[in-house]
Simulated assay, not measured.
Amino acid sequence: MNADERHRAVLELVDTKGSITVRELAEELGVAAVTARVDVRELARRGLLNRVHGGATRVDVRTSPTTGERPARTTTYTLGMVVPHASYYYPKVVSGAGSSADELGARIVLGVSQNDVAEERVQVARLLESGVDGLVIATRLDPQKSPETEAWLRTIPVPVVLAERRAGWQSGTVEHVATDHEQGAYDAVQHLAALGHRHIGLMHFDTITAPRLVTGYDAALAALEFAPQVPRELRDESPLELEKTAESIQHEVRAGTLDALIVHHDVAALPLVSRLRQLGVDIPGDLAIVAYDDELAALSDPPLTAVAPPRTEVGATAVNLLVQRLTDPSRPPHHLLLRPHLRIRNSCGATRT
């Protein structure tokens, strides 16, 4: 049975029974529940039936006795959202998504993958089984570097928008909205250079974001014709790793080979600043610091200048894109990058003479 035949069968069943559940449709048609949900969503989009939670009802074709017009049909979308964790960075993304969904009359159902690929797939499968119309996903792995993740995204039978991830060359109709982290790193280097700093380092954890920061950092150094620097990678958040890193930075500062540092992310920046001060390194007198993420940077002593990704806007834009796709499946897929904001505080110092 092809799609057109299934659609006719669905409409006949709904017309006969008045209302029907997705499970009943799947049994009657001999198809998977996911397929039945997709058919219901498409027919509801065309105005041929009403989509309700867990099923569909017959459209009331009666016209208004006063105007002769058919009452307007309201579609309420249920959107699934899966993020890696709910403790750092992503709460603002989720908040933005929720606010946008409220404005659009949609509903968000959240899943948290705990940074685990297998759990991510479980959460998505659960949301699909519950009947969501579309998905906003921040995948555990970068689709541009993980062919397996890219292939999996193509199999999802509802529209998908990636949040803080970017679709790969073979991601099909998957859309994305993400922070332009390359631009964020570039802006941070340019800011430090404008203050007179010439030996600017980059320190980061091994994250999906890190390679993009390195790209923007390298581009800024090249544009300024500064000597290339090798970014410093933090292996973990342990006190021993922090101690070794702080001591190494202290030696570079004293040797005159480092006068500014971009630190990704705040979890490393705050304790690093504290330890450097204990070692006698003045912030910003000896070393200027720019944090990346701006989750906690304002609470540091001194408050840290920071690159702030537009997390709330990323979440809101992702939901907007998803609802647009559901409303008009024929529109071109969108791939959007949002520029982060550099928040100036006390950790970079004045122009050097």
Rank of each mutant, 00 (worst) to 15 (best):
T63W: 04
Y88Q: 11
S146Q: 04
G68S: 13
L49Q: 02
I249K: 05
D187N: 13
V112G: 07
P329F: 05
P91V: 10
V174P: 00
L221P: 04
P65C: 03
A163N: 02
D293G: 02
G201M: 07
I344R: 07
E313L: 10
R8S: 13
A151C: 05
G184T: 02
I108Q: 08
Y90K: 01
A288Y: 02
R352S: 09
A291T: 01
E42N: 15
I20Y: 01
V307S: 03
A246C: 15
R198T: 15
A33P: 08
Y292C: 05
A178S: 14
P271D: 02
H199P: 13
P329S: 06
F226M: 14
G131H: 01
A106Y: 02
R46A: 13
A223G: 09
D218H: 09
E241N: 12
V93A: 04
A268E: 06
A298W: 05
I289M: 07
C348R: 00
D180M: 11
L261I: 11
L240Q: 12
G315A: 10
A167M: 04
P91F: 06
R126F: 10
L202F: 04
V34A: 03
I200H: 00
R277E: 14
G349F: 09
R70H: 14
E27H: 06
P231C: 03
L261E: 10
R51I: 04
E103H: 13
R345S: 00
A33L: 06
V10R: 02
A297N: 03
T74I: 15
D15R: 15
R235Q: 03
L128Q: 07
M203V: 15
I289N: 00
P211C: 08
L43Q: 07
A246T: 08
D301L: 09
E24M: 04
D133Q: 06
A260E: 03
G96N: 04
N2T: 09
A306K: 02
T179S: 11
I156P: 01
T16C: 01
A178W: 01
V267A: 14
V253L: 12
S171Q: 05
R325W: 01
R277G: 11
Q229C: 06
E5H: 11
A26F: 12
E119P: 02
R275C: 03
D4I: 15
P302S: 07
A297S: 12
L279N: 08
G256V: 05
R126Q: 12
E182S: 11
R45M: 02
A106F: 00
M1V: 13
S19W: 05
L104P: 02
S248H: 09
A33M: 13
V323Y: 04
T173M: 11
R8E: 14
R62T: 11
R6H: 13
P329G: 03
E120W: 11
R277N: 12
Q123D: 08
V124W: 00
R345I: 00
L304E: 01
E28W: 05
A210F: 06
L202D: 01
L279F: 12
A97C: 03
V124N: 00
A167V: 08
H181T: 04
L127T: 08
A318R: 03
W152N: 06
